[in-house]
Design a protein around this nucleic acid. Structure first.
Lengths: 346, 346
DNA sequence: TGCAAATCGGGAAACGTTTACATACTGTTG
DNA sequence: CAACAGTATGTAAACGTTTCCCGATTTGCA
C-alpha cells in the first residue's frame, strides 16, 4: 500500500479547500477555526471542523502572520550554545515558550559578531515575535537593530558596551560570584588566594575578578604578582593559567569559569599531583554536572540558570503582551554550594 | 537623542517603499534584491541597493515563502534537550544549518508524545523546510505526519515502532556499544560482569543490553540473576539499580547510560566506599564531560555525536535539494575510550 | 532606412490568510 | 405591516512578496 500523502490533494490543503468541502465560504472557515464569536449555526460549525479534520488541514502560519497575526516564533541568540550554562537557560526558555504556544529558534553566534549579524538578518527576515539575546563580545549593535525593528528583546547575562538605551536585562551577579567565592576561602582561614579567569572582551565578566579583588581588599589582603591569571576560555587556557600559578605561595584558588577552562585547570592540578583540598583549596564559579562526582567534591558558586531562563522568558512574554512593559534590571543572586574542596586552616 | 525607529516610517519598510524611494517599480526592486539576472541599468541597480540600505529594508520571509520560496527554517525535535548527547548533536546541526542559510528551531518533547504532537502542529503550521526527529517513545505517528505533509524528515537515533515506511535514519550502534563495553571487560579478564541500564519503552535502547548478553554469550558466560538491572533514566534510578548489585559476586560493571543515571550509580558506589577499579571495574556508555576528570578516569564507549549531527544535517540538506534523494540507514560505529577504571585480572 | 534582436522596465496576478463590510433572512414589536 | 434587532453567511480587500507577461526603447546589421 503506497502511503498516500493527504486526503485528496498532493499538498497540504488550504482554507479554500476546507471551505469547498464544507460547502461554505473561506471567511466562515476562518471564523470557525479561530473560534471567533460569530453567529454560526452549530451544524455548519461542525461541518467545517469535520472537513478540516478530514483533509488534515493545518493553518499556514506565514499567511496568517502576513495579515498581522502573531508570528509564533521566539528566538534565543547565545554566544556559546555548547556551554552548559547557556544550555540550561535554553531548556527553560524553550519549555516556557512552548507552554505559551511558541516555537523557539536557538542560534549560536559562537562569540563571533559577524556571525551574530548574519543570524540577526535571518531572524529579522523571519519577523520573530521576540528575542532573548546574549550578545557576542557585548556589542550592542544587534540589540539596537532589534529595537529599531521593534522586536521585543531581553538582554541576557551580558551587559552592552556603550551607554545604549536601557534594555530589559536578566543576568546573574558576576561581582557577587567572585566576591562570595573568595570570601568563603577567606572565612576558612586562607590568605594567599589565587584567581584564574577568562581574559574576556566582555566587560561584566571582569566583575568576577573585581569581586575577588574586593573581597581580598575588604579583609586587608593584597594579591601578589602572579596570583591572578587570565587566559582563553578553553581547556588549553585553563591549563596555561594553572601552570603559571606559584603553588608554593598560595593555599587557595578561585576558578572563575566552569566550562572548558575549569577542566583544563583541574586536569593540570591532577597531573601535577596537586590534590584538593590538601595542597590547594578550591572554589569554582559555575555548577558543572560533575561538581559532586569529583572526590573530594568541588565547592561551587551556583548560578541560577533555571531561574534566569524563566525570568527572561516570562519577561519576554509580558513584553509581547504589552510592549511598553518594563521591569528593573534583574540581577539574580548566586548561592554557595558546599563541597569538600576547601580546607580550614584557621 | 531619542532613538528613532527606522528611516522615515515607524515600522520596518516594505519592498514597496524601497521602490518608491528608488523611483522604480516593485518588480525591479525584487529582481535586484534577489539578484536574478535581468537586463538592468547598473545605475538603477545601484539606486535600488542604496534605497534598501538607507531604509534598512529586511525582506519579509513570510511573504516570500507564501509565494513558494524556501522557508528558511529547519526543525530539530528531540526527547531530552538537556541530555548532553542530544545537545552535542544540536550544536552541530545548528552550525551546519546556519552555514546553509537556515535558522533552526529546537524543540523538546520531553519524552512526552502529547507534547511532541502539539509541537508538531506548530512546526507544520510554520511550514518548516525539514525536520530532524528523535521521537519520544519511538512512536512513528509524528514521522508519518511529517511525511504526509511532505516535510523532508530524518529520524535520529531512535527507530520507529511499527513496520512504517522506511525513513531516512541516522543513529549510532547501540548493540555495538553494549557489546564493546562488555568485551573490553572480558578482555581484561573479567567474568562476573553486571549491567545497569534504562528500563526504556524504546526498543533499540535495549540493543545495549542485547550487546552485553551477546558478548557474554560469545565467551561462554552467563549473567546470574541480579547482575542485570534496568531502572529509570534518573539519578534515583541509577542509585536504585546500583544498590541492588551483588557486589560480593561481581568484578565489573557496564553502566549503559551516561546522563543522570550514571551519576546516580557512581555516587552510590562512592558513598558505599566501592572504588574503581580496585573493587569494581567500570565501563560507561556515553562520554560525559567529566569522564577524564574523575580519578581514576572512566573508560567510556564514545558515541559519535558530532558526526551524527553532521550526518543528519547534511542528509537533510541533500533531501531539501532533491526530495527523492535516499541514502542507506547510517548507523555510526562507537569507539572505545581508554580510562583507568578497568583492572586487569588475568 | 528598416526591422529583428537585445536591452530595460512595469503591471498585475498569485500565494493563504483575516476581517471589515455587505447582504439576507427571521422574528418581534409598535 | 413597517421597522428594526438579532441571526447567519458571503464578498472582497488587504498583508508583502515573486514572477509571468507584455510594452518600450535601443542597438546591430542587411
Amino acid at each position: 500500500m503506497k502511503n498516500r500523502p493527504l486526503a485528496d490533494s498532493d499538498k497540504t490543503p488550504t482554507i479554500k479547500e476546507v471551505a469547498k468541502r464544507a460547502r461554505t465560504s473561506i471567511a466562515t472557515v476562518s471564523y470557525v477555526l479561530n473560534n471567533k464569536d460569530r453567529y454560526l449555526r452549530p451544524e455548519l460549525r461542525e461541518r467545517v471542523l469535520l472537513a478540516a479534520e478530514e483533509l488534515g488541514y493545518v493553518k499556514n502560519a506565514m499567511a496568517s502572520s502576513l495579515k498581522g497575526q502573531r508570528r509564533g516564533i521566539l528566538a534565543v541568540l547565545v554566544p556559546q550554545f555548547g556551554n552548559n550554562f547557556f544550555t540550561r537557560i535554553c531548556v527553560e526558555v524553550e519549555a516556557i515558550a512552548q507552554r505559551a504556544g511558541f516555537v523557539v529558534t536557538i542560534c549560536n553566534s559562537d562569540e563571533n559578531p559577524a556571525q551574530e549579524r548574519s543570524i540577526l538578518d535571518r531572524l529579522l527576515a523571519q519577523r520573530i515575535d521576540g528575542c532573548i539575546l546574549s550578545p557576542a563580545l557585548s556589542r550592542s549593535e544587534t540589540a539596537i537593530l532589534l529595537e529599531r525593528h521593534q522586536v521585543p528583546c531581553i538582554i541576557l547575562e551580558r551587559t552592552l558596551d556603550a551607554a545604549t538605551p536601557d534594555f530589559d536585562f536578566v543576568g546573574h551577579d558576576n561581582f557577587q560570584s567572585g566576591y562570595l567565592a573568595t570570601r568563603k576561602l577567606i572565612e576558612a582561614g586562607h590568605r594567599r588566594i589565587a584567581f584564574i579567569g577568562w581574559d574576556s572582551p566582555i566587560p561584566n565578566i571582569h566583575d568576577r575578578k573585581n569581586g575577588y579583588l574586593a573581597a581580598m581588599g575588604d579583609c586587608g589582603l593584597t594579591p601578589s604578582d602572579g596570583w591572578l591569571h587570565l587566559d582563553e576560555l578553553t581547556v588549553e587556557g585553563g591549563r596555561r593559567a594553572a601552570e603559571r600559578l606559584p603553588f608554593s605561595e598560595i593555599t587557595a584558588l578561585v576558578i572563575a569559569h566552569h566550562h572548558e577552562m575549569a577542566k583544563g585547570t583541574l586536569l593540570t592540578l591532577q597531573e601535577r599531583g596537586i590534590s584538593w583540598p590538601r595542597d590547594l583549596s578550591l572554589v569554582l564559579i559555575g555548577t558543572p554536572e560533575w561538581h559532586d562526582l569529583l572526590r573530594p567534591s568541588l565547592a561551587c558558586i551556583q548560578r541560577p540558570e533555571e531561574e534566569m531562563g524563566r525570568a527572561a522568558a516570562t519577561l519576554l512574554l509580558k513584553k509581547l503582551h504589552d510592549p511598553r512593559h518594563r521591569e528593573p534590571r534583574s540581577i539574580l543572586p548566586v548561592t554557595f554550594l558546599e563541597g569538600g574542596s576547601i580546607r580550614s586552616i584557621s
